[in-house]
Simulated scan of single mutants.
Amino acid sequence: MYEPIRTKSVHSPMAGTTSDFPHRSREEELDIQLAGHLAALLAVTDELRALAPSAELEAAAERLAEQVTRLRGGRTPARAVASGGRKTQLTALHQRAHTLAGRALVVAASRADTAAAILAAEQMDAHAAALGPRELAPH
Rank of each mutant, 00 (worst) to 15 (best):
R96W: 07
A108H: 04
G102M: 00
S25F: 04
L119Q: 01
S19P: 07
R86D: 12
Q67E: 15
V81W: 09
I32Y: 06
T99F: 12
A39R: 09
G84M: 02
K87T: 12
E56K: 05
H98L: 15
A78K: 11
A40T: 05
H139L: 14
V107N: 04
V81M: 06
V10M: 14
R49K: 10
H23E: 14
A52T: 10
R86T: 09
L34N: 01
A101K: 01
E62D: 13
A101H: 03
H11R: 13
G132E: 02
E3I: 08
A78L: 14
R103S: 12
L41Q: 09
A82W: 00
G16Q: 03
G36C: 08
K87Y: 08
H139P: 15
H139F: 13
D113W: 01
A130E: 05
R70H: 12
A104K: 00
L90T: 01
G16S: 13
S19C: 13
L119W: 03
L48N: 00
Q95Y: 04
L34G: 03
K87I: 10
A80W: 05
T114P: 03
R6D: 09
A59Q: 13
H11Y: 15
D31R: 14
H23C: 09
E27R: 11
F21S: 14
V107E: 00
E29F: 08
T45N: 13
A116C: 08
L105I: 04
P53L: 00
T69S: 11
R63I: 09
L136Q: 06
E27G: 05
A52G: 05
A126D: 04
E135D: 15
P138H: 00
L57W: 02
G85N: 01
H94T: 03
S110H: 07
T114G: 09
P22N: 05
A65F: 01
A112S: 15
T91M: 11
T76N: 08
R70W: 06
A92I: 07
R96D: 09
I5N: 09
L38W: 00
T17D: 15
A92K: 09
I5R: 12
A35T: 01
Y2C: 06
A50S: 15
S19F: 13
M14W: 13
A59W: 05
V44A: 12
L57G: 07
A109F: 09
A52L: 14
D20F: 11
L93R: 02
A39D: 12
L136A: 06
E58R: 13
L64F: 07
K8Y: 12
A112H: 15
M124A: 03
G84V: 03
R96Q: 14
A65G: 05
A128G: 07
Q89F: 08
E58G: 06
T88C: 05
E29Y: 08
L41M: 07
L30H: 11
T18L: 14
L93I: 00
T18Q: 14
R103G: 15
A35V: 00
L42Y: 01
H98Y: 14
E66P: 06
R134S: 14
A137E: 14
A130M: 05
H23M: 14
T45P: 08
A101R: 00
S9F: 11
A120V: 02
H23G: 07
T91Y: 06
T17N: 11
L30N: 11
E28I: 05
A115K: 12
D125C: 06
A137H: 10
L71K: 03
A109C: 08
P22G: 08
E56H: 04
E29Q: 12
L136W: 04
A116E: 02
